[in-house]
Design a protein around this nucleic acid. Sequence first.
DNA 1: CCCTGATATGACCCTTCGGTCACTCGCATA
DNA 2: TATGCGAGTGACCGAAGGGTCATATCAGGG
Lengths: 231, 231
Amino acid sequence: MRRSSASKKPVLKTKALGARAPRRGRVSAWSNVVMSAEQQFALKRRALMKEAARAFSLYGYEATSLLDIAKMMGVTKAALYHYVKNKQEILFECHLLSHELGNQAIEYANANGDSSLEKIRLLARRYIELLTDEIGSCAVLLEFNALTPENRAVIAGHRDRFERHLRNLVKAALAENKVAGREPKLAVFFLMGAVNWLTRWYRPDGEFDSKFIAAQFADMFASAIAGRVAR
Amino acid sequence: MRRSSASKKPVLKTKALGARAPRRGRVSAWSNVVMSAEQQFALKRRALMKEAARAFSLYGYEATSLLDIAKMMGVTKAALYHYVKNKQEILFECHLLSHELGNQAIEYANANGDSSLEKIRLLARRYIELLTDEIGSCAVLLEFNALTPENRAVIAGHRDRFERHLRNLVKAALAENKVAGREPKLAVFFLMGAVNWLTRWYRPDGEFDSKFIAAQFADMFASAIAGRVAR
DNA sequence: CCCTGATATGACCCTTCGGTCACTCGCATA
DNA sequence: TATGCGAGTGACCGAAGGGTCATATCAGGG
């Protein structure tokens, strides 16, 4: 991570929170209020993933060291290994996370869209919103080839499923709108590029808010597929 | 470069070629046929840049070691330093190269397009063709933040000029076609993402040839900007 | 025939980084 | 109060990578 860095420390100490609440009794009263050890563990692990994902998206996998991540969490590098097997595991789960979002977007589009084109628009919009908002620009999809061959195979599977779904939507939309001469596979690559590139320039406090960006991109993509240009 | 690698060695030995041609006389006859030392140097340096650019585009800057590049050229790592100050210089010049292509594309579009929309289409098409064909997918533009702050400033200047030009074209096209509600800046990001992403999946021997891809992308972008969807 | 300069080499240095390990600290339970 | 356990630490290791340097090779020119 050779770059000028801002300062910020979300620190990992969930403990400070839990410590304040006394626990007695076998099943420990407060159990609704106070988190169990496993919950805390899971929470911290998730926080780690989110922070790491943000760093990976922003600076790249190779350019982000575990020390960087540890510092962000306010913790030693060694401490990370309580939550994670190795660096690769972090990357892998970040990819999985991104694809979860993709699937959510698919479901949303299927539930709310009528025509294929509308489904595409909703899918793109929702996907971008999730990517930028919920995880603070977590798409690590740029880092596909930093994955080990085994993990890459798994992620490729997810990716292919997502792309195939989108491709089929595009095919359908082209048919429904009687558009000829458009290659669905290239259209999907076109969108994926635009979306993945988002993670490199999008900033939550930037000029445009994420809803607007998502809507614009979705509209542009819909037009790219089925829009006719006045000549 | 932790990845399964194919084998291939363009070797740097221009010498083997020059050695065969005897040189006598003061100005050295054969001077038309045989390359001067400087020419050979320049040629080899250029070859280095091209090979490095390819590797950077494919695997990323950090993931590509100088040893990798040296092996590609059939040469020792130390030998590279005869042609180059350091790794950063390679990256920097690769960026410059890419932007040269951008400018070529701009000129081409200005010379051959009439309407703004047509200029955009030509610009996009040409840019992609150049990127994929001439330098074998050399766009290292993904690696912007691997640049040192000084170099980054320079490259940012080039990039901004390019993007500003394109943005103005988009603005004009929107006006000419009476399209409302499209944000030019986002449209440019949209295209840049799609184009930069190309370098990650495009293969010269892939399913689609580069002219076709370029045409499709250009058309899609033109539609994205000024295309109207039948609803 | 030797000198010079360009080209290339292999050994080496230093730093960074991923990962490990023996350990400590503090809390909750018995 | 003793004990056990999960969380976290600091010191360390080995490997890889960027970069340097003294040296070898060789072609061309005086």
